[in-house]
């Protein structure tokens, strides 16, 4: 052996070879560097989100109005509370994970498996919550109309409270029978029938309710409080916009349009929370694999629970990303 390796004069030094200067195993090091690169991927997404937000700084939807649902409290305005709960669930599962790692250091198989199970359950609750959040976001609540320029017009009453389309629009006669969801899909050929109401029906409904006004997506600064608010037009301006500029009804959100405002908002929401949710999902799979290995005694035989530590790092990273997603999507 010694004959094949040239002496470099660095033997015995920290980086001279034969030691692990960073004090971590190969697997752990590589997990750290994978996390670093993944963090930069998420940075790319969040920075792109920031780019679009600064580009539409006067039009970006207000998160409080978009994410205000809470389970079993239908119709109650509860901005952010549900995502705050999701944050606690994820931080909680991070804690059970780090407890599992700690139990692994003490070679306590029972405790490791118990805490891993709790972590997996926490992860499942989180992914389920995210699915529910998506469902509400996609379904929408009030409905809106879109102008030729792609801007969203929403309806409010004289107090400035949102009014849903269903409160003032009646479904008129249809020249074709709209199919139900279980009979067929009808979007491409039927134009307005992809939505519950047609734009003419919205105009007719608007005319019957003199208290209705239109709110545009344009944000103005309230001089008194300094807070950003959406512009509410006068009745005349509202009627003019609806008559001359509105072209279609928008209900809920998808990748090309959403009733909350700038379409990019929905795109980033789906993409970033979706990519994060995918990380949570894959984290659950890793945790499950390690969990079964713990039960089978694999790490007991190996003499080290380092694998728990490595998936633990990944799991904490997922929590770390969520902390930022929470801030930039729901708070800022």
């Amino acid at each position: 052996m010694e004959t094949t390796v040239a002496a470099t004069g660095t033997e015995g030094q920290m980086w001279g070879g034969g030691k692990s200067p960073l004090g971590a195993s190969y697997g752990k090091l590589m997990m750290w560097f994978f996390i670093l690169s993944d963090a930069l991927t998420f940075t790319g997404f969040l920075a792109a989100y920031g780019f679009s937000r600064f580009k539409f700084i006067e039009e970006w939807p207000l998160a409080d109005e978009v994410f205000n649902h809470f389970p079993f409290m239908h119709g109650v305005d509860a901005p952010m509370f549900y995502v705050a709960l999701m944050t606690f669930v994820l931080i909680g599962s991070s804690v059970t994970m780090v407890l599992a790692v700690d139990a692994g250091h003490h070679m306590n198989r029972k405790k490791v498996s118990f805490y891993l199970l709790l972590t997996i359950i926490g992860g499942l609750i989180f992914v389920g919550s995210q699915a529910w959040e998506w469902k509400n976001f996609i379904a929408g609540e009030y409905g809106a109309v879109q102008t030729t320029g792609g801007n969203i017009l929403q309806f409010v009453d004289t107090n400035g409270d949102r009014v849903a389309l269903e409160e003032f629009v009646n479904v008129g006669p249809r020249d074709v029978q709209a199919y139900g969801d279980n009979q067929g899909i009808w979007y491409e050929s039927s134009g307005d029938l992809g939505t519950t109401y047609t734009i003419e029906e919205v105009r007719a409904g608007f005319a019957t309710r003199p208290d209705l006004l239109i709110r545009t997506q344009h944000l103005i600064v309230n001089e008194e409080t300094g807070a950003s608010e959406k512009t509410i037009l006068s009745r005349e301006e509202s009627a003019f916009k609806l008559e001359n500029q509105a072209v279609k009804v928008v209900e809920g959100a998808n990748l090309t349009e959403n009733e909350y405002g700038v379409p990019l908002f929905a795109d980033f929401f789906f993409f970033i929370t979706g990519f994060h949710g995918f990380h949570v999902f894959s984290g659950i799979i890793f945790n499950l694999i390690v969990f079964f290995n713990v039960l089978l005694g694999t790490y007991e035989r190996r003499g080290s629970y380092e694998m728990v530590e490595k998936v633990g790092l990944y799991w904490h990273f997922v929590d770390l990303v969520w902390v930022f997603v929470f801030t930039f999507f729901y708070l800022v």
Partner: peptide
Amino acid sequence: KAYYITWDFMHMRDEVSGLRRAV
């Protein structure tokens, strides 16, 4: 929050400074 998650949950506090700085 990110600092304490990284430092205490991911045990960055216990790693050697070389690893900490590299990441």
